[in-house]
Design a protein around this nucleic acid. Sequence first.
DNA 1: TTCATTGCAAAAGTTTTGCACGTGC
DNA 2: GCACGTGCAAAACTTTTGCAATGAA
Lengths: 138, 138
Amino acid sequence: MHGGDGLKTQEIISLFKEKNFRATPQRVAVFDYVHEHRTHPDAAEIYEEVKKQYPAFSKTTVYNALSALAENGFIMPVTIDSLSVHYDGNTKMHGHFYCEKCKKIYDFEVQEQSELENFTVKQKAIYYRGICPCCKNT
Amino acid sequence: MHGGDGLKTQEIISLFKEKNFRATPQRVAVFDYVHEHRTHPDAAEIYEEVKKQYPAFSKTTVYNALSALAENGFIMPVTIDSLSVHYDGNTKMHGHFYCEKCKKIYDFEVQEQSELENFTVKQKAIYYRGICPCCKNT
DNA sequence: TTCATTGCAAAAGTTTTGCACGTGC
DNA sequence: GCACGTGCAAAACTTTTGCAATGAA
């Protein structure tokens, strides 16, 4: 196991159909990868890994799938690292810590965040950056 | 006036020297632009605008200056929009709202955010995204 | 004088686009 | 069947790098 949700392909497809989200094998594979690997992968990593299973996979499709999945709330984009957009299968509100040394992204719990009057808020993100405990001791 | 701090060149240079930050005219100009234009400009905008005053300006220098200024706490990077890094002259803790329609970034107030045990936190950011009041009514 | 910074061009990397083809519903 | 998704290559962008020249301290 990878520490994810462990949803079977059929369950993922059902999830998509509930939201009238077209269930292509590519979208299912990207969803599955992001949910099974809670290390905040970016498009490049997802492309490399998913291609091992599905050799015909295109990079464009990864970008399309990620955008569509994020738009529909199936995954959460993390723009903490300005180089590339990372994605998180955990869509519940939580914070992200970016270690400037090892570049790893850590999750942490946060309290409920306030609303903004008159604004339609679709997504809230809390990003911290600095040095993680591991890298402090080296 | 642009709504910024209104620091004179000499004051900016003093500010730099206090922190042993080498005061080149380019760094002063970039600092000045970011502090006078509180619209969260990115490197491209700063380059275009500052070049009007100083034609010999190089894009590399803008990136160098922005990194160095951010590293020393003179400005704050805003990675809310995955396309480019924006910069904020206001380094006091506050939130940023990104409108997905008009792409404008709004500031808002936030409460004190919690610390993280064992982590060295150098920077905290709170990003919301969605639709701003202006764009809702169109 | 010295060493950090600048400026230019070229490279590296991510993301987008255009368009023909394929496929879920 | 039709609209939407996919795949490929090329384009568009942002940011970084290498290196010689310049200038702040």
